[in-house]
């Protein structure tokens, strides 16, 4: 076993031979959008993301379904699964089967298995002083989804955030494979600062985040300003309060965005400062348009400094 349940990593990794290790991960959740097909795509992209974040290639997947069969038309389930399959196809991953149960609340997700070379596993620990941090998708998904849930988002906004959530981290991971990456994770439920905290907690490194450089969905700020911040963002902040240094007059809206829980968020990649601009340029070429350098790693005390 290379990475197991004792780590806060994205997936488990088990070495099979000198040159092959298995990555296994599982993720499922209730709907984040109204459209069943889109929900299927988002759930699949989200489940696959952990494999990409470990530096691996997804190979097989199994569906996990909880469905309120009494109250919901079976077409809904069919559309969800169709969305999932389309994303799996895009990821060149084979669906082997799955399991469904009847439940009051709809939930869908997948268990995904991928391959990685044992020497090429990208854990979330391993950032080094002198590294830069690159983020590949804009933040604010949780806030925008809260507005969507409240019926306060425009159609265009829903389309944009749906497209972002259903976008695989595959292209970003392929580009990343050409670089000497010291650590990587995908930004999901704990938000940018929460996942970053996992990367450096208890280490001799300190991270400086340049908040102004962090890509953010354009609507997130306005929604945050009228109180559409998911409870998770506050919990994330509370949980990591002691690890995050922020000026007293730091913009509270931006602060919430930095802690905002993401669904199918981007990769957070650490690599040597000299290499970072080249990685960002290659990501942009590959269509990962939002990719940006968002911070630096220095020697220090396991603290995140946000400026």
């Amino acid at each position: 076993m290379l990475i197991g349940a004792d780590s806060a990593d994205d997936a488990g990794v088990y070495r099979i031979s000198e040159d092959l290790a298995l990555i296994q991960t599982l993720d499922f959740f209730p709907p984040v959008v109204d459209d069943p097909y889109d929900f299927g795509r988002i759930a699949a992209a989200n489940a696959l993301s952990d494999v990409y974040a470990m530096g691996g290639t997804p190979k097989t997947a199994m569906n996990i379904v909880a469905f309120p069969a009494q109250s919901m038309a079976v077409e809904v389930l069919r559309d969800i699964l169709a969305g999932g399959i389309d994303i799996l196809r895009e990821a060149e991953t084979v669906l082997l089967g799955g399991h469904s149960i009847v439940d009051e609340e709809l939930k869908y997700g997948l268990s995904v298995t991928g391959f990685v070379h044992p020497q090429r596993v990208l854990a979330n620990r391993g950032l080094l002083p002198g590294d830069c941090l690159v983020l590949t998708k804009p933040l604010g998904v949780g806030i925008v989804n809260t507005a969507v849930k409240g019926g306060l988002a425009e159609e265009e906004t829903i389309r944009r955030v749906t497209r972002q959530m259903a976008t695989l981290n595959r292209d970003a991971a392929r580009v990343m494979a050409d670089f000497a990456v010291s650590a990587c994770t995908d930004v999901t439920g704990f938000g940018l600062l929460g996942h970053l905290a996992e990367m450096i907690a208890g280490t001799a490194t300190r991270v400086r985040i340049d908040a102004g450089a962090v890509p953010v969905l354009s609507e997130a700020r306005d929604f945050a300003a009228i109180g559409l911040v998911p409870a998770g963002a506050y919990k994330n902040r509370e949980y990591r309060r002691s690890m995050v240094e922020m000026a007293d007059d730091f913009d509270p809206l931006l602060r919430d965005i930095l802690f905002d829980p993401q669904t199918s968020g981007g990769l957070l990649i650490g690599l040597a400062e000299k290499q970072a601009p080249a990685l960002v340029a290659r990501l942009h070429e590959a269509g990962v348009e939002a990719a940006a350098i968002v911070g630096q790693v220095v020697a220090g005390d396991g603290i995140i400094e946000v400026r």
Binding site: G227, A231, A233, Y234
Partner: peptide, 14 residues
């Protein structure tokens, strides 16, 4: 809860 307190406060302020 704290989240609702902050969110409603922020909404009313807006």
């Amino acid at each position: 809860n704290d989240a609702a307190r902050e969110n409603v406060g922020r909404f009313l302020a807006s």
